[in-house]
Design a binder for these strands. Structure first.
Lengths: 527, 527
DNA sequence: GGGAATATTCCC
DNA sequence: GGGAATATTCCC
């Protein structure tokens, strides 16, 4: 037997013990040499074991055998209860065979099962932890992806909004120019004091009333009509030239009926129609479907402007670009059309020369229009940013009566709303602030609803709104969400709204005739 | 000595050994009784130890002492090299004292340092893992928050976009109506054949030119002029009233020159102004700054519509609402102003009666405007969704020449673009599709650029764009991102763009006056 | 002194 | 058969 290095003492001792012919009466190889027998357990333990080990216990010997993987050989024929105490005990191990001591080194003592067990348990714990970490990590990647997607969508949305706002601003410019052109054109009419011949016909359906006037009317009749119109301080005209903004999608005819009624009943002040609070109060519409607070506030601000900025354009300024100062189209149209009626004098008093001059002035208006379309007046002195300030065009064409206080206040509001939007970065509950609180420019935004309390100063309403927005920005959006049926985007649905979708929820229209109520200066149906 | 339960065999054996007076010559208590001495190491190991333990090694004995926390007592006086082998060895333990065997139970054998060590290591690992998990978890919560915030912001952005689109649609309506009003007004002018006296002055800055014309013209000439104007098929008017829509930010005059040249060369048909392909082809602009494909496509579609829908408005239809059928404001203004110039004859041919009548027609136009503002014509027969279809107003005021094929194609394109937007939900790289590919309504969007290849059929361009969009939706946005300087939102910056911000990146103007170059029909400065 | 493997004992 | 504590040995 090689006293080989890596073979435990127990195995070498056991090999020696079994091999030793002196101990064959107690322990020896089996017939086949693949196992060994302990013949007399009692004497073997007491007489033999102490010679090789530090004990004389058969149990300890067997314990060591078990520690090295030896197995007791069960004999079926002797396996029953008999021969329990005295019969021989047989042990075997695959690498413990007669004459093959070189196999001993393959017999490994069992390591403390404590540690592997512990390892197993720990590894199970580790596996759980690691799988948990993996889960979290996967979720995180998923969220990263969603976050990136959302971020990308957000950027696209911001771009879209920037684009839309740009379009909006451009449209505002276009509208402003168009209205200014009309203003110029009509003011030119007014300077010659042409009188309207016919009352305004309220066309109530798609068919426009046709005005096919005989070209060769009696000139005398025309003259008379003009004389009457020019001399009267108040016209009997049943025409209402007031323009208000209303919601066209409003299917019920209430507003229309009201307005037409009012139009019929209202008196037309010829010389000067003072746009007052009453007028503003009348500029109301059914806010049934369009109820965004921001839009309402914008409308209020518009009304405010229309109410508080005196209009002083006069016929004396015809052919001057002062009309460019008209900031509020409603007001502009209103005052223009009013002036048209007010300044009108009897055309019969005009000679042909004057008529020609008047017609010429129309040409001038066309040219003015072209000039306006060139945008020179606006692109030069109006800062781009100023375009969104209520006093933007006033800068270059201030016609007076527009106090700087008003302007400053409006500016303040605008800035406040913008600040509000920016402060959201600190707000855990971030909300996009609708920028439409910018008062004046929100005017032709389709904002059709006006506050139901016209007596409350609209500028205060606007401020209140902003204050509310400062406290809870969500308020600006919540109401519109409840009332509008605009589709709400989800994380899943990323497609843009179709224009049809965008419009069908709440489509409102800009203009409506201002239903002036009857007043002391506006006797009804004087015709 | 109590053979107490929980005291290890070694301790009880050691206690017995030290206590036993028989072994005092080998091992005994110290003087103070707080330690014990091994006097003759050699003989003690060989003679005494085997009586109590399964070995005779002093080393093993000492090992056991160490295992139970016994310490060797160092003697300073004998600590030097001397007495190395033969000197007595002293060991002590706080709980191993003479006469105090009840303390033995407090002496604990050191447990395998392996496991605590392992535990320590494992716990360190676990701590690392757990802190890592915690980190991941925290990050996850942070991302959850950001995700929710972004989601909320996204929803707000979608609402904002819906709102802006609504405003946009409303503004389109307003612009359409305003232009229609102007068309009506100017057409009324045209029916009387008022001749412009002066060529159009191109105002190149904010100052408008004033037109103070000689008041005393020859009335006979006016009458003649009218007759001629009514009878003449073509006018020699030197005025170009063509208005095109282009990018005002475009500084070079190339495009403008081309268009004006073409306009000058084209014949003006008086009785019936035929808007032909030439006119549409001229409506081009430099796409330098506004290069969004979607917008371009929209412009192209507009041009297409303008090109392929013959315009049949004639002077005979004055005072009829046919002008409402004018779909393309460019075309409208073009034809209107052309008619104005074409039909204009010497006003001296007009009598006072005719002048009065003409002025009256202006009043009628005003009334028409009011009627339009009432929106009656539009609200009834035009479906809201149809407003965004290129054929929307044609529905109610079809003037012929607009083939349904064209309409269907445009509709198809629109739907395709919308589908594109919706399909993005399946796309990992989601992109917001600009809806401005809807052709006609993009018209006054501030979309001022037109394709630089006017010879390519615009409708095909539009389809190509949509096809490209179907392949790579990102293409729709990419170009505009590169050229526009619109601020891009980040996750941090959540505040809405200010309107100033939105506008300053690329502000373009809708309308520009067509600078008429000198031509055979447009001699300059005839005044 | 103490780590580590093995051995022995005790116990289930 | 084997877990577990203790013991012994070997080694650094």
């Amino acid at each position: 037997m090689k006293q080989n290095s890596n073979v435990p003492a127990f195995l070498t001792k056991l090999w020696t013990l079994v091999e030793d012919s002196d101990t064959n009466e107690f322990i020896c190889w089996s017939q086949e040499g693949s196992s060994f027998l302990v013949l007399d357990e009692q004497r073997f333990a007491k007489e033999i074991l102490p010679k090789f080990f530090k004990h004389n216990n058969m149990a300890s010997f067997v314990r060591q055998l078990n520690m090295y993987g030896f197995r007791k050989v069960m004999h079926i024929d002797t396996g029953i209860v008999k021969q329990e105490r005295d019969g021989p005990v047989e042990f075997q191990h695959p690498f413990f065979k007669h004459g093959q001591d070189d196999l001993l080194e393959h017999i490994k003592r069992k390591v403390s099962s404590t540690r592997p067990e512990e390892n197993k348990i720990r590894q199970e714990d580790l596996s759980k932890i690691l799988s948990s970490v993996q889960n979290v990590h996967d979720k995180q990647e998923n969220m990263d992806s969603r976050l990136a997607t959302l971020k990308r969508e957000n950027e696209a949305l911001w771009r879209e909004i920037a684009d839309l706002r740009q379009k909006h601003a451009n449209q505002q410019q276009v509208i402003k120019k168009l209205i200014q052109f009309i203003v110029t054109l009509v003011q030119n009419n007014s300077i010659l004091g042409l009188k309207r011949k016919r009352p305004l016909l309220l066309n109530s359906n798609g068919k426009k009333s046709k005005f096919i006037h005989p070209i060769f009317d009696d000139p005398v009749d025309h003259s008379k009509g003009l004389v009457n119109g020019l001399n009267g301080l108040k016209s009997n005209s049943d025409i209402s030239d007031d323009v208000i903004i209303c919601d066209l999608t409003d299917e019920d005819a209430e507003v229309t009926d009201d307005t037409s009624k009012n139009f019929d009943q209202r008196d037309v002040e010829i010389v000067e129609v003072q746009i007052d609070d009453d007028t503003a109060a009348l500029v109301e519409a059914n806010a049934e479907r369009e109820s965004s607070d921001g839009l309402e506030a914008a409308c209020e601000d518009i009304t405010e402007t229309a109410t508080e900025v005196p209009e002083t354009s006069s016929a004396l300024q015809v052919n001057k670009p002062s009309v460019l100062s008209h900031e509020d189209p409603v007001k502009m149209m209103d005052s223009i059309l009013s002036e048209n009626g007010a300044i009108s004098q009897n055309i019969s008093l005009l000679g042909k020369v004057e008529l020609m001059d008047y017609l010429d002035s129309i040409d001038c208006s066309l040219e003015d229009f072209q000039a306006m379309l060139q945008c020179k007046q606006f692109s030069i002195d109006a800062d781009i940013a100023e375009l969104f300030s209520p006093n933007n065009t006033v800068n270059s064409h201030d016609i007076g009566g527009h106090t700087s206080k008003e302007t400053d206040k409006s500016k303040e509001n605008t800035e406040l709303s913008l600040r509000e939007g920016k402060s959201e970065g600190d707000n855990a509950d971030k909300q996009l602030i609708q920028y439409t609180t910018c008062p004046l420019l929100a005017f032709l935004d389709g904002c059709s609803s006006l506050p139901p309390e016209p007596e409350v100063p609209v500028c205060d309403l606007g401020e209140n709104l902003l204050e509310r927005a400062a406290e809870d920005p969500g308020d600006l959006l919540e109401p519109s969400l409840e009332t509008q049926e605009l589709p709400r985007s989800t994380l899943i649905r990323l497609e843009p709204l179709t224009e049809a979708e965008a419009s069908e929820a709440s489509l409102f229209y800009l203009c409506e005739l201002n239903p002036d109520g009857p007043g002391p200066e506006a006797p009804q149906l004087e015709v």
